[in-house]
């Protein structure tokens, strides 16, 4: 397989998984790194394109963000918002303790 210039290692995968709060078994790190490198190598073909003098594109649609007026039009749906929470109490989401 072609290796991209800035390929990822098993350690990179471990780090990204940790940052993304994903659990990846140790024996999957290397295969995932290889998959990612395959994708990166494919995308790297883009670097062959000459983009001299072309502004970076932020969006595929050439328009500015639509905006809304500063009015309260939402909220007041506490029960809906809490519905999927594994645990709630007294109107709060309740989660495992996040500080020591």
């Amino acid at each position: 397989m072609a290796q991209p210039k800035n390929g990822v290692t098993a350690d990179d995968v471990k780090k990204i998984a940790k940052l993304s709060r994903l659990h990846v078994e140790a024996d999957r790190l290397q295969p995932i790194a290889e998959d990612l490198n395959g994708i990166l190598a494919w995308i790297e073909q883009l670097s062959e394109v000459d983009v001299e003098g072309v502004e970076p594109m932020t969006s595929a649609v050439d328009m500015a963000a639509p905006m809304r007026a500063d009015k309260v039009t939402d909220g007041g749906k506490r029960d809906d918002v809490l519905k999927n929470a594994p645990k709630s109490d007294d109107g709060f989401f309740v989660v495992p303790r996040s500080v020591e």
């Binding site: 009015k71 939402d74 809906d80 918002v81 007294d90």
Partner: peptide
């Protein structure tokens, strides 16, 4: 009055999760 990306209110000290949109 409302949030940066949603129409929920920004009042201080309201009952928990009453100013939350989806």
């Amino acid at each position: 009055e409302s949030k940066l990306f949603s129409g929920s209110a920004t009042d201080y000290g309201s009952a928990p999760n009453t100013q939350v949109s989806l």
